[in-house]
């Protein structure tokens, strides 16, 4: 599976990373290099193998339904590049 320039642009768009036209060809080469190398996995017989999804072999622990956090509005907003009153602000979104 080899990436064409349109796919490189589509992935960049999905990942929300701006890509100038000049950046597409070298990136395409690099990504295809990596993907080509990864294709060695096709040699492995994985029939009937359950995928391993995580690093830990345990079941999920659950916490009690108690309010233990929040009420830290200013700390939450302190790093905001654009704080408007008690809100985060972004360019207007049209739905």
């Amino acid at each position: 599976m080899s990436l064409d320039p349109a796919t490189v642009r589509r992935i960049a768009r999905l990942a929300r990373i701006r890509l100038d036209d000049a950046e597409v060809p070298p990136l395409q080469t690099e990504l295809n290099g990596i993907l080509g190398w990864i294709e060695q996995l096709n040699e492995v017989n994985v029939e009937g193998v359950e995928p391993l999804t995580g690093g830990a072999q345990m079941a999920l622990k659950m916490r009690a339904d108690e309010v233990t956090d929040g009420n830290i509005r200013d700390a939450v907003l302190a790093n905001a590049p654009d704080r408007a009153g008690d809100y985060f602000a972004v360019p207007k979104v049209v739905e």
């Binding site: 929300r16 990373i17 701006r18 905001a80 590049p81 654009d82 985060f88 360019p91 207007k92 979104v93």
Partner: peptide, 22 residues
Amino acid sequence: GVRFGLRKDGEDLDQLYENTRA
């Protein structure tokens, strides 16, 4: 670029994301 860290503005939200992350 919304809650912390670097922000590079754009004309709309998607441009802001793309510029910031690039």
